[in-house]
Design a protein around this nucleic acid. Structure first.
Lengths: 215, 215
DNA sequence: TAGATTGTTAATCGATTAACAATC
DNA sequence: TAGATTGTTAATCGATTAACAATC
């Protein structure tokens, strides 16, 4: 219906967070305008790619001038959905959950952490980031009285199986999964799996290559 | 010199950890052989891609039979450098450093955690994963008496600037960086930057799209 | 041998880069 | 207006898929 908008390639979407980071940095430096050429040399990508990428969403620039940093920054935020102020909860208050809770960048990106859950009685009730850790039993009630959008899964593999259906039933619409399991969820739930060790293995490859070619 | 081996595309390298994971799983299930077709349906990629990928490294299969799971698993480990038994240290014993230290997968992948460092006197001397947290002052001595390959940077942005040169000087060859900074290091040092919030933003995009198209 | 499945070449598809007319 | 830089089309490059001969 309406204008037939071509679907944005996912490779482009995956580049948006990086643009967002660089633009945020420029903003902090008080730079108000930038050309694709300047941004290109800062980021180490071609100016062509930058213009193509931004044009997927419909031209934020101005001929002869470049791009308004603040406007571009905002537009990308809008595209990524950061302006919705999605509410998140963390499941699992171990070290990883704790680290993620303290991660100030999330709030900066517009995500609001509203709850942390754990099943360990020793941890329940303790304060993390001015939130009191809740018991897993409170999950359903909490989700129905607060419109929670995203659950961050920072718990062991085994615990995942029973938790995910509860989250889905409670109306969670996005899962950020640190548990190294591939999740089976309904079509309307978005999932992002994090495989931390993949990065370490990629590093290991690079390192090995360098040593082969090096001396 | 010698045989002109075509460089392996990095897209292929980035897929290797995933293959490695699936093959490990098959191994655990006692499956000894698999065809590209079977693996294809398990992993949700084309059989063609699987065969092309493996052929970048020179044909591990056998016509009419398929691939030997164990052999393939080992070959990928070798390509990724997992067989070197790289020694790692963690800089920063906060929640993130702690979570990474407990991450059992790293040992399973052949990485050996040999030391954890922190500058906080309250943390120094405490035990994490049967390793006593060391003071930052001990870094150079430790690195020269132990051949450390990889440093995992789990410390705040500000602390990075002074630590990285020390690590490089101490002969570290790989940096796995969780500090949201782009590092400037000599050419022979491999770097893998982790931007956790990028994944959350991608999830946010997917979620937003689904809701747009959904109801 | 017949059947299966690889390794590899060729065809297609998509993404990146180059080029330039449009326009601020 | 002249200069700069975008938006966009066209050219190139690379990656994925399809197809099939080689061979276990």
């Amino acid at each position: 219906m309406g204008i037939e908008k071509r679907e944005v390639p996912f490779v482009v979407v995956k580049r948006l967070p990086r643009y967002y980071r660089y633009l945020g940095e420029l903003l902090r430096q008080g730079i108000t305008r930038i050309s694709s050429g300047e941004l290109s040399s800062k980021m180490g990508v071609t100016a062509s790619q930058i213009r193509q990428d931004f044009n997927c969403f419909g031209g934020f620039g101005q001929q002869g001038y470049g791009y308004n940093v603040e406007k571009l920054h905002q537009e990308i935020a809008k595209i990524l959905g950061l302006t919705h102020g999605y509410k998140t909860i963390i499941i699992g208050a171990g070290h990883l959950g704790h680290a993620l809770a303290n991660h100030t960048n999330f709030a900066k990106r517009g995500f609001e952490l509203v709850g942390i859950f754990d099943k360990n009685p020793e941890v329940i009730g303790t304060e993390i980031n001015s939130l009191s850790v809740m018991a897993m039993e409170e999950l359903e009630d909490f989700c129905s009285s607060n419109r929670v959008d995203i659950a961050i899964l920072a718990l062991p593999k085994k615990a995942i199986v029973e938790v995910v259906p509860r989250l889905v039933a409670a109306g969670i619409k996005g899962l950020w999964n640190f548990s190294y399991t591939d999740l089976a969820v309904p079509d309307d739930v978005a999932v992002e799996n994090v495989h931390l060790s993949d990065g370490l293995m990629t590093l290991s490859y690079k390192l090995t290559e360098k040593q082969k070619n090096g001396d």
